[in-house]
């Protein structure tokens, strides 16, 4: 039998005190890591390699604007391509006609399962394999096609989800007014589906901005370079990371506002429900 005083001594910490202690330990570890990093790192060397001021200036003035514009043009074209083809694929997947469903499913599964890089490599070898083949608006046409084919496979699934999320009564109301199934899809279902799909589609756009960095594989002239190729070429030329850091920052200029937009849309959609 234990005495009352012993029980009091062995009394466990209250949950609040326990949480306080655990948090104190976490902060201590965090501060230790930061302190070690500050003293151990060679800041001069880091600044020299990643943030060299004159190289930052060179990178920005030499053609960052054009590279940024190319990235935007490549992405925008591929997004439009992906949206159109993705919508067609989504409607095909929901079709009552078997072969349409099979074709769409095969396309979607194939291009979602494949690394995007393989698709781009194939496009880069296209001129060798088919010497007479001319894709219009080179290199934009090629980039839009390569990037858009992959994007459409992903977007098709997003769009299909959006279409299926539209209440069945909407189609019934449209059909009961005499609309054909095509008219009901175009006038009633798709406009609503795209509204709910806006946040996920914007996410696809962000992914696409970053995927556009892979298109340098296709082989682009200097004036056609997007941000990654532009930064990489300068980095190699000066044997310094700074141009890549600047190019990376330029991506954030595009993607961060889009992220904010997505969060806003999701918040307002949540309120509307």
């Amino acid at each position: 039998m234990s005495t009352p005083t012993k029980v009091a001594a062995r009394r466990p910490l209250s949950p609040r005190k326990r949480a306080q202690r655990i948090r104190a330990v976490q902060y201590a570890v965090l501060i230790a890591i930061v302190v070690i990093a500050i003293f151990a790192a060679d800041w001069k060397q880091i600044g020299e390699v990643f943030f060299k001021p004159d190289l930052i200036k060179t990178t920005i003035t030499q053609g960052l604007g054009r590279a940024l514009l190319n990235t935007i043009v490549y992405t925008a074209g591929a997004f439009v391509f992906g949206l159109v083809v993705g919508t067609v694929l989504a409607v095909m997947r929901l079709s009552e006609i078997g072969p349409y469903r099979w074709i769409a499913t095969a396309y979607i599964e194939f291009f979602r399962g494949l690394p995007a890089l393989i698709v781009f490599l194939m496009f880069s070898l296209m001129p060798l394999a088919f010497p007479t083949l001319r894709i219009p608006y080179d290199p934009y046409g090629t980039v839009w096609l390569a990037l858009g084919i992959v994007a459409s496979a992903y977007m098709a699934e997003t769009i299909r989800g959006g279409i299926q999320a539209v209440h069945k009564g909407q189609a019934e109301a449209a059909r009961s007014l005499g609309m054909t199934s095509g008219q009901a899809m175009r006038k009633v279902i798709l406009p609503q589906a795209f509204r709910t799909m806006l946040p996920p589609l914007t996410n696809e756009l962000i992914l696409l901005v970053k995927d556009s960095s892979l298109v340098y594989i296709i082989g682009l002239a200097a004036t056609q370079a997007e941000l990654t190729k532009y930064g990489r070429d300068l980095s190699v030329q000066y044997a310094n990371m700074t141009p890549l850091v600047v190019a990376g920052a330029a991506y954030l200029i595009i993607t961060l506002p889009l992220s904010v937009v997505v969060r806003r849309m999701e918040a307002s959609a949540g309120k509307a429900r």
Partner: peptide
Amino acid sequence: GMVFQSFNLFPH
């Protein structure tokens, strides 16, 4: 003409 229990107006 058809009128539904759940109205089914086009919300957009």
